[in-house]
Amino acid sequence: MTLHTRTLAPIALALASLAGAAQAQSAVTVYGRVDLSLAQQADAVDNKEVRNGSGSRLGFRGTEDLGDGLKAVFQIEHRFNADDGTQTKSAFWDGKAIVGLEGAFGRVTLGREENPAYTYSQSPADPWATDTVASNGSIISGRIGTTRYSNSVNYRFSAAGFTAAAQIAEMDGNAPATGTATDRPYSLGGAWAGGPIVLGVGFENPADENDHWATVNGSYDFGIVKLGAFFGTGRDGNDQKQRAYLVSATAPIGNGQLRASWGELKNRDTDVIRDRQFALGYHYALSKRTTVYADVVHEGRDNMADNLKTTGYDIGIKHNF
Rank of each mutant, 00 (worst) to 15 (best):
S37A: 15
L15C: 11
T88C: 01
T63Y: 00
D43M: 11
D65Q: 04
V73D: 00
A16N: 06
S26G: 13
A24E: 12
L38E: 04
G32V: 15
A27G: 10
A19N: 10
G85L: 03
D83Q: 04
G32M: 09
V45L: 10
L38A: 07
D43Q: 15
E64H: 12
R79T: 06
G53T: 07
S56V: 11
E77V: 05
E64K: 12
A19H: 12
A19G: 11
Q23C: 11
N81W: 02
G59W: 07
D46I: 13
D46H: 15
F80N: 00
A44H: 11
A16T: 08
S90K: 12
R79K: 13
V34L: 05
Q23M: 13
V30Q: 14
V73S: 00
G53N: 02
E49R: 15
L18T: 15
L36E: 06
L66V: 01
T63Q: 02
A24Q: 14
T63F: 00
Q40A: 12
L38Q: 07
R51Y: 12
G59F: 03
F80M: 01
S56L: 08
L13T: 15
A19T: 13
L15P: 03
A39Q: 11
V28H: 01
A27L: 07
I76W: 02
A14Q: 15
L36T: 12
D68M: 05
V50P: 00
G53Q: 04
L66C: 00
A14T: 15
Q87G: 01
A14I: 11
S56M: 05
D68N: 14
S37P: 05
V34R: 03
Q41F: 03
I76V: 15
E64M: 09
L66H: 00
L15A: 14
L58F: 13
D46L: 14
A24V: 09
V45F: 04
D84L: 02
A42H: 10
V45S: 06
Q23R: 14
F60W: 08
G55D: 03
R79P: 00
S90Q: 06
A22T: 12
R61F: 07
V30R: 10
T29A: 07
G55W: 03
R33H: 02
A22C: 01
S26Y: 09
A27H: 08
V73I: 07
S26L: 07
L18E: 15
E77D: 08
G53L: 08
V73Q: 00
A82R: 03
Q23L: 14
E49N: 13
S26E: 09
F74T: 10
K48S: 10
